[in-house]
Design a protein around this nucleic acid. Structure first.
Length: 235
DNA sequence: ATTATGATCGTCT
DNA sequence: GACGATCATAATG
């Protein structure tokens, strides 16, 4: 894993309502209070939970602050982007193309304005209910793409600015054993976090500015990551 | 297989 | 008033 903070974090939370949830402790705010380019790859393999649904993150993008023309924070703390300049470890939710609610996690110290966009993942809890809602989608496609990921998790505007470090409706934590997916993999095959997985990086997608920055990160070999699928090249 | 287009609305100019 | 950090569907090779 990366340097320093990626080990098992010390849970800052005492017992409370959130303690009833079984699983690893959430990442503390200090995990997100680092350069966004350090946090982004460290989030690969982590889990986002909202109610009964949990997604294991397989693809992310880093967005900078005033220095990143592709970032919503580029124009400063406008009403929409103000959350990005707030404390790290909180959700930044925005409406994409008038249709899709997409989820970011704010990073860095207050005033920096950086965040990680969660672009794709694998549904590892609540999958039956999710599948029932979108029966035409293959399991690997349920949370593929930021719009679908947000949709599966039930991300809505009111979640913006809520902490993901515990005590809020959204929680990000180190990935538990993936065995609960029930897709043939037993707990013995489960991979905690991104351990054993290769991480690749490349340009961000869907943007028109700063396209040269390789600020997109993904787990190699994950079906939910479109870039991981070898493109059939014509001869 | 790839390409084109409509949906739909908050945000910023 | 224009433009998206996108997706689903339809048309076409």
């Amino acid at each position: 894993m990366g340097g320093g903070l990626t080990g098992t974090p010390t849970p800052p939370q005492g017992p409370g309502p959130a303690a009833a949830v079984v699983g690893p402790a959430p990442y503390p705010a200090a995990f997100f209070d680092r350069p966004v380019l350090a946090v982004a790859p460290d989030l690969l393999g982590a889990t986002v939970r909202h109610g009964p649904v949990a997604v294991r993150i397989t693809e992310v993008e880093a967005y900078g602050g005033l220095d990143d023309p592709a970032s919503h924070a580029f124009r400063g703390p406008t009403p929409r982007a103000a959350v990005m300049f707030g404390p790290p470890g909180r959700a930044y939710v925005y409406l994409s193309y008038g249709i899709h609610w997409c989820l970011n996690i704010v990073c860095g110290p207050v005033g920096e304005g950086t965040a990680v966009l969660l672009r794709a993942g694998e549904v590892i809890a609540g999958r039956e209910a999710v599948q029932a809602c979108w029966p035409k989608l293959a399991a690997r496609d349920l949370a593929r793409g930021p719009g679908r990921l947000g949709r599966v998790l039930g991300v809505v505007a009111s979640l913006t600015a809520t902490p993901v470090t515990g005590g809020g409706p959204l929680v990000v934590h180190p990935s538990p054993l993936a065995g609960e997916l029930g897709d043939g993999r037993g707990p013995a095959d489960a991979v905690p976090g991104a351990a054993g997985k290769r991480i690749e990086r490349g340009p961000r997608v869907g943007i028109t500015a700063a396209t040269g920055r390789p600020w997109r990160f993904w787990l190699v070999g994950e079906p939910s990551v479109s870039a991981a699928r070898p493109r059939h090249r014509r001869r």
